[in-house]
Deep mutational scan, measured.
Amino acid sequence: NQASVVANTLIPINTALTLVMMRSEVVTPVGIPAEDIPRLVSMTVNRAVPLGTTLMPDMVKGYA
């Protein structure tokens, strides 16, 4: 099973992502692959992402 990116904290809308905000976890449904974490750093989220939420491609500006 592939690990996905999961919010390690509440990420407010329009926040630039940092490494400490994200962790990898095997979850269903599958979200952004964990190997993309380095690429996500400094990208911003377009909605509030609660703790434990899987990051989906449409949640990160410029990812999809």
Rank of each mutant, 00 (worst) to 15 (best):
V49G: 01
R39C: 14
K61E: 13
A48V: 15
P33D: 08
L19E: 05
A16P: 12
N1I: 15
M22F: 05
R39H: 15
N8S: 14
I37W: 03
G62W: 06
I13C: 10
G31T: 01
Q2N: 13
M22Q: 01
I37N: 00
Y63K: 03
L40Y: 02
A64F: 04
P57T: 08
K61H: 12
E25P: 01
A48T: 15
A64W: 03
E25V: 04
I11G: 00
V6A: 03
M56G: 05
P57W: 05
A34Y: 14
A7Q: 01
T44V: 12
I32S: 01
P33Q: 10
L51E: 12
P29M: 04
A16G: 13
I32Q: 00
R39P: 01
Q2G: 15
E25M: 05
L51M: 14
A3N: 07
G62E: 09
N14M: 14
V20D: 14
G52A: 10
L40I: 13
R39G: 06
V27I: 14
L17R: 00
G52P: 00
L19F: 08
A48K: 09
V41A: 08
L10P: 15
E25L: 04
V20S: 10
A64C: 13
N1R: 03
N8Y: 03
N14A: 10
V60N: 02
V60Q: 01
T44Y: 11
T53K: 08
Y63W: 12
D36T: 05
P33T: 10
T54L: 04
T44A: 08
K61P: 09
E25G: 08
S42T: 10
V27D: 02
N46Q: 09
V27N: 03
T18H: 07
V27R: 06
L55Y: 00
V30H: 10
N1Y: 15
M43G: 04
T15N: 04
G31D: 00
A7N: 00
Q2C: 10
T18I: 06
T9G: 10
A64D: 15
G31Y: 02
A34I: 08
T15H: 13
Q2W: 09
T53D: 14
V45W: 00
N8F: 04
V6S: 02
E35F: 06
N1L: 13
T44C: 10
I37G: 04
L10V: 13
I32N: 01
P29E: 07
V20M: 15
G52V: 02
P38T: 10
L55S: 00
G52S: 12
A7V: 08
P29V: 06
Y63V: 04
P12E: 09
V20Q: 15
L19M: 13
I13T: 08
S42H: 12
V6D: 01
I11R: 00
T54N: 02
L40M: 05
G31V: 01
T15A: 08
E35G: 10
G62T: 04
T15E: 11
V45H: 01
P12N: 15
M59P: 02
A3V: 08
G52L: 04
A3Y: 09
L51Q: 13
Q2R: 04
D36C: 05
N46M: 14
L51G: 13
V49W: 03
R39F: 11
P38N: 11
S42K: 11
L19R: 11
G52C: 04
I37C: 06
D58T: 09
G62P: 06
D58S: 12
E25H: 07
P50N: 10
R47Y: 09
N46R: 08
V5I: 14
L55I: 15
R23H: 06
I11Y: 00
I13W: 06
T9I: 15
V6N: 01
V6K: 03
T15K: 08
S4K: 00
V20P: 14
R39S: 10
L40S: 00
L17W: 01
I32F: 02
R23M: 07
T18W: 03
I11Q: 00
N46A: 10
P33S: 11
V60S: 01
V6M: 05
V5W: 02
T53F: 12
M56T: 15
Q2F: 12
T53N: 13
M43W: 06
A16N: 07
Q2S: 12
A16C: 07
V45S: 11
I13F: 14
G52T: 02
V20F: 13
L40E: 00
D36V: 07
A34L: 04
A48M: 11
V26W: 08
P29K: 05
M22G: 01
K61L: 10
R23K: 14
N14P: 00
L55V: 06
S24I: 06
V26H: 07
Q2H: 11
V41K: 06
G62I: 03
R39E: 04
V5G: 00
P38R: 08
S4F: 02
R47G: 06
V27S: 04
V60T: 02
V6G: 00
T44P: 08
M59T: 07
Y63R: 04
I13V: 14
A3C: 10
S24N: 08
V26N: 07
T15Q: 09
A3P: 09
T54V: 14
L55F: 08
D36L: 12
L55Q: 02
Y63I: 05
V49C: 07
N8Q: 13
T15Y: 08
N46I: 11
V49R: 03
S42F: 12
K61F: 09
S24T: 13
L17V: 04
V60E: 02
D58H: 14
N46W: 05
M21Q: 08
P29D: 10
R47D: 06
P12M: 10
V49H: 02
T53L: 12
T28S: 14
A7T: 10
M56K: 10
R39N: 05
L17M: 05
L55H: 00
V41W: 03
R39Y: 13
V26Q: 11
S42R: 12
P33A: 10
A48I: 12
A64E: 09
N46F: 10
T54W: 02
I37Q: 05
V5L: 03
P57D: 07
R47M: 14
I11M: 04
N8D: 12
T54E: 01
S42A: 13
P12Y: 07
A16T: 15
V26D: 15
E35P: 07
T54F: 02
D36W: 05
T28H: 07
D36S: 13
M21W: 03
D58Q: 08
A64Y: 03
V60R: 01
V41S: 03
G52W: 05
N14Y: 14
M22E: 02
Y63P: 04
A48E: 12
V41C: 04
D36G: 05
V20N: 10
L17D: 02
D58N: 12
A3T: 09
L40H: 00
I32R: 00
T15G: 05
R23Y: 07
P12L: 11
R47P: 03
I32A: 02
E25Q: 10
L55E: 02
M56R: 08
L17Y: 00
V27K: 11
R23E: 04
Y63T: 03
A7K: 02
V30Q: 13
N1D: 15
V45A: 03
D36P: 00
N8V: 10
A16I: 11
I13D: 13
T28K: 04
L51S: 13
S24F: 07
S4T: 04
T9R: 12
V27E: 02
V45Y: 00
I37P: 00
S4M: 02
S24P: 09
P33H: 07
N1P: 15
V45F: 00
A64K: 15
L19Q: 11
S4R: 00
P57V: 06
R47K: 12
I11N: 02
P33L: 07
S4I: 02
R47W: 09
L10Y: 11
S4C: 03
V30T: 10
L17A: 00
V5H: 01
I13S: 11
V49K: 01
N14D: 14
A34R: 05
P50W: 07
D58A: 10
V60C: 02
G62R: 05
L40V: 09
V60I: 11
T9L: 11
I37V: 08
V60L: 06
I32V: 08
E25K: 05
V27T: 12
P29G: 03
A3W: 05
T15D: 03
N1C: 05
A64G: 11
P50Q: 09
Y63S: 05
P50S: 11
A64P: 09
M21P: 02
S42P: 00
V30F: 09
T44I: 15
G31K: 01
V30E: 15
I32L: 08
L55P: 00
L40N: 00
L51C: 14
V49E: 01
M56L: 13
Q2A: 12
S4Y: 03
N46T: 10
S4L: 01
N8C: 05
A34F: 06
E35Y: 10
I11D: 01
I37D: 00
T54M: 04
V45C: 05
L51P: 13
R47C: 09
T53H: 15
E35R: 05
M21L: 07
V45E: 01
M59V: 11
Y63C: 05
N14I: 03
P12K: 06
A64R: 14
E35W: 06
L55W: 01
G62S: 09
N8W: 04
